[in-house]
Design a protein around this nucleic acid. Structure first.
Lengths: 115, 115
DNA sequence: ATAGTATTTTATAAATTTCTAAAATACTAT
DNA sequence: ATAGTATTTTAGAAATTTATAAAATACTAT
């Protein structure tokens, strides 16, 4: 394959990778992932658990489903969401652990992010 | 600790976690991380490798440093950047692997993201 | 068919992120 | 001090993301 073509494919992969990671870049969506850790849940219950109105929640769920982070199952008029791939929890946990260590070690982190 | 207090701390952690993940939500920043995989590199070389102008690159590097994803070392007037914690590469690789599998399995992913 | 519940979609305004280009800073060497 | 190189910062426009509120859809039960 030509060099220039290979380079473009790499760039494309970085774009899709970034697109996927956008899922993790919002606190509500992280809470959704963590809430679905062990089992599926329907939209109404997610809404009360997380404390967010259903319209907004549904938007978040929709974009997470577009990116294949969540999948759904429908029973009557209830929609159940669950994690598409439990391995993503490993990535979630690694980053959260790094974060917690940093907060313990480096009090300035909080300030750096709040300026 | 009071229940309401605990809830607020959890919410705060989701916020910092999301703040950290914003680093991964831009293709250029993912390429920076991948480029620094084995060794540090200075800004000028990063700039030519990635093909991005230095002003913009420096902005990305700055926000990554704020979030403690990168650290720096200065030698003369050359600034070397490196990964603050190599463990983050494990998270990077897990997600990239999930992504590659999805692209192989599910041709529609690309379309879903490009609409 | 009608009413009721669950979820999604839409429109729009507000907030945030990104890129660009220019200016400023930091350091080195003469 | 001056000039040159490396990096950072700034200001502003453009693009994207987010929240809110309302309307629309999908399904169930009567």
């Amino acid at each position: 394959m030509a060099k220039i073509q290979k380079k473009n494919i790499e760039k494309k992969i970085y774009e899709y990778h970034a697109e996927m990671c956008k899922v993790f870049s919002h606190p509500t969506r992280l809470e959704i992932i963590n809430t679905l850790r062990e089992s599926e849940m329907n939209v109404t219950e997610l809404s009360t658990r997380i404390g967010i109105d259903m319209g907004n929640l549904s938007q978040h769920l929709g974009m997470m489903r577009d990116r294949r982070i969540l999948t759904t199952r429908k029973d009557g008029n209830v929609v159940y969401y669950r994690l598409a791939n439990p391995k993503m929890l490993d990535a979630f946990d690694i980053l959260r652990k790094i974060l917690i260590e940093q907060i313990k070690k480096d009090g300035n982190l909080v300030e750096a992010l709040e300026e």
